[in-house]
Every structure is written in structure tokens, then in C-alpha cells.
Design a protein around this nucleic acid. Structure first.
Length: 484
RNA sequence: GGCCCCAUAGUCUAGCGGUCUAGGACGUCGCCCUCUCACGGCGAAAACAAGGGUUCAAGUCCCUUUGGGGUCACCA
């Protein structure tokens, strides 16, 4: 049976390395819609083969965020299914066995080169202005017996794919036939020296074993697709049908990134975007309904979906239209539903309970509470009233802006979001910059709260949450940067 | 830089050779509605990147150029 005649099975395969990304929701949407329309299955698989980048809380945030927007999966790490496990770190033995199979078939080989040698080869090629910077295939020459012996002796190695000469044609449903010259392609590492597979191996093995029929992923993957095709061929398996969706973009058309856009699904949630509005908006990115409809539900999209209506120009993820759609969705709610939505958003007791200890000493009457806590409920702040104070004495605005972004980088690199950590980071940060804590903290306070007086700064940030805090810091940095 | 993808207004898009003096939406601006502000209604400005072909006919097909993007890791 060819891949296209089997029951439809698609997957979203996020890597748990940080915040749940809008790009993940975007690609998940198209996978989901296609699966539902075809009466197929939508699978969630966690690609956690990079032990150094995996974050403990990230996987759960991905589950929560995807469910929040309204996309649920038929099989996955948390719901199980007949093709598990669905977490790649739990499938290590499977990949090792498949890598071995490739070695035995003469399709792959062990490479004992050190990182230093690889770097030296690369540097030499760079110096010689060689257009191909890949591995020089040095270890292809190692005899099988020697290779086995060295591996048995415990010598560190990776397993590489033998990329043959010739060309590979990728048949992409959205782009037609795309031809790649294999001379451009590196002998790809399949198994890392820690025994974990790379994306390429794990992805192909899992997609095959999980009987994935249609690979729907972002365009950034298209140039590694020939490697995947080669792997299917090496194993003697049928390829899935390839679909490379356009990439979501920043305003400047570059691939969407957290430096230039709020990219975490949690940001949109915290900023008061309704999940259906977000999903609807994502459906407008690269796809159109067919009539002039722009507001539609998930089931409507499932019914109307066709690949023929995908447009390949990378859509700029611009918030204006999302906000407009969100407004439409809000107006459509009944008073009761809207009240519930507000409660679910931030007017929850558990959220208020976090605010109370911060402001209780600062209010004289209950009616002081709301005016005292507005910035805990706002999205973006208006700095007009404090603009004059937004800075550091003796420091140029451009440097203040840069400094602020430096703090963002620090807090993003941290795993948790607690006030002690935020404070420790802030102290290290202003010391590194040579800024007085007194000045630096006032700057942060103004940015985060829009006021000169507030509850303890880092506790405020802790309660406000990562997304809103980070957004305000970036917005303020941009504002200050413009003055330079 | 090599390879690959893409190209209609500021943005999201419709357009799959003639019905395009290029349609819709967001945003912007104006007017109306109105006790205010929104909502809503009406209207305006705003685009086929350039140059070659093919064709009776090109936004639509082909080529080149330009522009943008992605990718070239023991990250995914």
C-alpha cells in the first residue's frame, strides 16, 4: 500500500525547549484540520532528543497551550495510543537498532572524528572558499571490521548516512517537484555520540513506525527533506506526502522570532486574546476560505479546507487584524459568557489572591484596590506620563535600550519564574553594566508598572508573569531606542 | 557565499489568459449615526517588483534580473 492510500495519520512534533510557540499552533492547526477532514488521526509526538536544550516544564506547557487553543490529539504522550511511546527520549533503543540496520546494509557508517577535527576541516574549507562546507567523509574509509572493533572498545563515535551521488526529487504537494543535487548534502549525522538520534533519523523512523501518511510542516524543513527521502530509500520504506507550509514572519519578513514578536501562545492568552480568535487568525495565515469569509470556526475550516487555497508567500504575523478578530469574538459572546471569560482570564480568585499580599499595606479602603492594581490587568502600558524618567542617568538611550534587552535575555534563559531568581538576575545584570541598582531597579519598575511607586518590584514581576513582563521590557526598549 | 523557496496596496488575501478601468478584509483618513466613547453604516487614499518573451489577448504561462526568506550543527 502506498502512503497516500492508507488511512490519514498526521502529526505535530514540537520540541520541548521553551515556551509554547505560535508556529507550533499554526502547523498543528493545518495538521488537525486536514486529519479531521479526512477522517484521520492527529498525533502529538514530543521531539526531546536534545538533552541539553530540553526544559522540564516545556512539555506540559505545550499540551496546555494546544488544548487552550482548541486543538486536541488522538494519540500522544499524555493520552497514549497504539504506536507509543510518543516521546522520543523513550524510544532510544528503536533508533539505535535502526541505525545499526543502516550500517549493516551499507547505507551508513560510524564516524570517529573528533569535534576538533570537524572544526578544522570546516575552517580549511572556509579558508579555501569551498562552497560545500560539509563533512569530508573521512571515516567512510574505515573498514567495517575496524569500525566494529573500535566501537566495541568503547571509542566515541556518531553514525552518519552515506549520501550517494546524484539527485533527489522531493515531491511537495504545495510546491511541485523540487530537485536537490546530492553533492550539496552532507553525510548527515543520524546517531549522536550520546546514543540519541538526530532529528533526521528519529523523525523518519517515527513517522514510518507511527504510519504517518502526510508530513505537514514548516518551510524551514524543505532543505532537509532530501535527507529524509534518502533515509526512506535506505530503509526501503514508502515516503509520506510532503507539505511545506509557509513560515510565519515578523514585520520585516524574517522568520517569526521572539526578539521581534510575542511568540509564546501564553502571551496571547495573558494579553486577553480568545482562543478561537487566535485559531481563526492562524487559519488566515497562508490560507483563505474561498468566499470572502474571514471569520470562521474550526469545523467550518475543516469542511472548507483544500491545499489548493494555500498561498506560499510568508504571511506577516501582524497583531492588528488579530485584535480586530478578537473584538468580533468578544462582541459575539453573551454578557454571561463574557463575564465568565473575564473571570477565567484574570479575575480569578487565585490571581487576586496573589495581588492581595502585594497591595494590602498600600490601600486604605477596598475601593483603592482597583486603581492600585491596574497594571496587573493591562497588556501594553502607556509610558507617556513617565517618559521623562525612563532612563538611566548618564547613559545614552540607545544603551539603556540595549541594557533592557540584556535583562530580557537573562530572564528568558532561566528555567523558572520566581522573584528571588528575577532579583538575583537583576543584580548580576546591573553590576555587569555598571549601573547603580537604585537606578536600574527604578527603570525596571517604570517599565513593568508604568509607575514610580509599586509593590516590591520582583514580586510584582513574578505575579505579572513572564509573558507580560517580557513584552513590556521589549516595548519599552523599543520606545527608548527610538529616542536615541 | 552554495543550494532551495517565494513575489498583487503598510498588512492578510481573491485572482488559476479575455468578465481586472484588479475584488474583500485589517490598518489609516473623512463623513453619518449619537449625550460622550465605542459599535455600526457610508466613502476615500493605497498594489499586480523590473525587463524580455509566448499569445489575437498576460496580474494570470516561460526566461532573466531584482527583492525577500529559508537552509547549510553530534538543534530541532
Amino acid at each position: 500500500m502506498t502512503a497516500s492510500s492508507r488511512p490519514v495519520r498526521v502529526r505535530i512534533a514540537p520540541s520541548p525547549t521553551g515556551d509554547p510557540h505560535v508556529g507550533t499552533a499554526y502547523i498543528a492547526l493545518f495538521n488537525y484540520v486536514f486529519a479531521k477532514q479526512q477522517g484521520g488521526k492527529f498525533i502529538l509526538r514530543i521531539e526531546d532528543t536534545d538533552q541539553s536544550r530540553a526544559r522540564a516544564d516545556s512539555e506540559q506547557m505545550i499540551f496546555d497551550a494546544l488544548r487552550w487553543v482548541g486543538l486536541s490529539w488522538d494519540e500522544g504522550p499524555d493520552v497514549g495510543g497504539p504506536f507509543g511511546p510518543y516521546r522520543q527520549s523513550e524510544r532510544k533503543a528503536i533508533y539505535a537498532a535502526h541505525a545499526q540496520q543502516l550500517i549493516d546494509r551499507g547505507k551508513a557508517y560510524r564516524c570517529f572524528c573528533t569535534g576538533e577535527r570537524l572544526a578544522a576541516v570546516r575552517a580549511a574549507k572556509l579558508a579555501a572558499k569551498d562552497s560545500f562546507l560539509g563533512y569530508d567523509r573521512h571515516c567512510r574509509a574505515v573498514e567495517r571490521a575496524e569500525s566494529d572493533a573500535r566501537a566495541a572498545a568503547g571509542e566515541a563515535h556518531v553514525v552518519r548516512l552515506i549520501v550517494p551521488d546524484g539527485q533527489v526529487v522531493v515531491r511537495d504537494r504545495l510546491r511541485g517537484e523540487v530537485t536537490f543535487d546530492l553533492a550539496q548534502i552532507d553525510d548527515q549525522v543520524l546517531l549522536k555520540s550520546d546514543g540519541m538520534p538526530t532529528y533526521h533519523l528519529a523523525n523518519v523512523v517515527d513517522d514510518h513506525l507511527m504510519e504517518i501518511t502526510h508530513v505537514i510542516r514548516a518551510e524551514e524543513w524543505i532543505s532537509s527533506t532530501p535527507k529524509h527521502v534518502l533515509l526512506y530509500q535506505a530503509f526501503g520504506w514508502d515516503e509520506p506526502a510532503w507539505h511545506h507550509m509557509p513560515l510565519l514572519r515578523n514585520n520585516d519578513k524574517s522568520k517569526i522570532s521572539k526578539r521581534k514578536n510575542p511568540v509564546s501562545i501564553n502571551y496571547y492568552r495573558d494579553a486577553g486574546i480568545l482562543p478561537h480568535a487566535l485559531l481563526n487568525f492562524l487559519g488566515l495565515m497562508g490560507w483563505s476560505f474561498g468566499d470572502d469569509r474571514e471569520k470562521f470556526t474550526l469545523p467550518e475550516m475543516v469542511e472548507a479546507f483544500t491545499w489548493d487555497r494555500i498561498s506560499l508567500g510568508g504571511p506577516v504575523f501582524a497583531l492588528d487584524k488579530l485584535t480586530w478578530l478578537n473584538e468580533k469574538y468578544i462582541h459575539e459572546l453573551s454578557n454571561d459568557e463574557l463575564a465568565d471569560a473575564l473571570i477565567a482570564w484574570r479575575l480569578r480568585k487565585d490571581y487576586l489572591a496573589q495581588l492581595v499580599p502585594l497591595v494590602r499595606q498600600r490601600i486604605k479602603r477596598l475601593d483603592d484596590f482597583v486603581p492600585a492594581t491596574t497594571y496587573f490587568f493591562a497588556g501594553d502600558l502607556d509610558y507617556a506620563d513617565v517618559a521623562a524618567e525612563l532612563g538611566i542617568p548618564e547613559v545614552a538611550p540607545a544603551d539603556v535600550a540595549k541594557g533592557l534587552l540584556g535583562y530580557v535575555d537573562r530572564i528568558e534563559a532561566r528555567e523558572g519564574w520566581d522573584h528571588a531568581g528575577l532579583e538575583a538576575e537583576a543584580r548580576a545584570w546591573c553590576e555587569a553594566l555598571g549601573w547603580k541598582a537604585k537606578h536600574a531597579f527604578m527603570l525596571l519598575r517604570l517599565v513593568v508598572t508604568g509607575r514610580k511607586a509599586s509593590p516590591p518590584l520582583f514580586e510584582t514581576m513574578a505575579v505579572l508573569g513572564k509573558e507580560l513582563t517580557r513584552r513590556r521590557l521589549r516595548q519599552a526598549a523599543e520606545l527608548i531606542g527610538k529616542r536615541a
